[in-house]
């Protein structure tokens, strides 16, 4: 059985069908990439799945449990974490405190939370910034902080919204390696929205293409990138990096 099942998910904003009858399944430990042009409904779909907004129709099932329209904190507690496309650190806290709060939210004891947080920070490669305030951190560090906080609650499913955006290629590589490691070592199931095709090609077991709120197609990275409809809608006439 799939760990995450989305069926017929729909949401309209003032008549605009932002997400229109979207369905997909993700197996335990799989990585699903979601691509699509700007405005295709990728972030809205994430918000619907994570409970930030309620869908008009459709269901979201996590490990056999219907979580459709549940409040975000319950969905997080059920094992689904997310990152935000625009980074949202707790501004009054330094990096360590940010992750410590997340570890506490994951249910850790007050005694061990800071040590656990420091461990996660080291693993994510944020040690250099551990004791820095979040104000003035470079984008690369803030993106990693998003990831560190999400991991701190030990999710089974991780929704990543453009976790590579704003990073220069040299900064992407370690994050990609980390995401692969999360799957192989921790068995975390990943669903990620990404514009950087090289990352999508490398990580995804399967790629879902959204266009105008609807599923255009789903398949292996190779299938999807050679599909003429995808090329037309998203990649442009001539697929070139």
């Amino acid at each position: 059985m799939s760990l995450l099942t989305v069926e017929g998910l729909s949401k309209s904003f003032k008549g605009l069908r932002a997400v229109d009858d979207v369905s997909f399944e993700v197996e335990q430990g799989a990585i699903l990439g979601i691509i699509g042009p700007n405005g295709a409904g990728k972030t809205t779909a994430f918000n619907l799945i994570a409970g930030a907004i309620k869908p008009d129709a459709g269901t979201v099932t996590l490990d056999g449990k219907d979580i459709t329209g549940h409040p975000p904190h319950k969905i997080a507690a059920a094992g689904m974490a997310r990152t935000f496309q625009l980074m949202r650190p707790f501004y009054s806290m330094d990096v360590l405190q940010n992750v410590t709060v997340a570890v506490l939210a994951g249910g850790a004891s007050e005694k061990s939370a800071r040590d656990q947080a420091a461990g996660i920070i080291e693993r994510i490669g944020l040690s250099q910034w551990r004791d820095s305030p979040t104000e003035g951190l470079p984008t690369a560090a803030l993106k990693r902080l998003e990831l560190a906080r999400a991991l701190a609650i030990k999710p089974r499913v991780l929704l990543l919204d453009e976790v590579l955006a704003g990073l220069v290629p040299a900064e992407r590589e370690p994050v990609l390696g980390l995401l692969e490691e999360l799957r192989t070592q921790d068995g975390v199931t990943l669903v990620f929205v990404e514009h950087i095709m090289a990352a999508v090609m490398r990580l995804s077991d399967s790629v879902l293409v959204l266009n105008l709120g609807q599923v255009l197609t789903q398949g292996s990275p190779q299938e999807v990138t050679s599909d003429p409809r995808v090329i037309e809608a998203y990649l442009g006439e001539e697929p070139s990096a």
């Binding site: 975000p72 904190h73 997080a76 974490a81 949202r88 650190p89 009054s92 806290m93 709060v101 506490l104």
Partner: peptide, 25 residues
């Protein structure tokens, strides 16, 4: 210092991000 106080600070800083971590804001 308590868990509750730390959650309250997080919720003040960003309630959506707090909720996404499982904190009942």
């Amino acid at each position: 210092r308590s868990r509750a106080g730390q959650f309250a600070l997080a919720a003040r800083d960003d309630d959506e991000a707090s909720a996404a971590l499982g904190i009942p804001v």
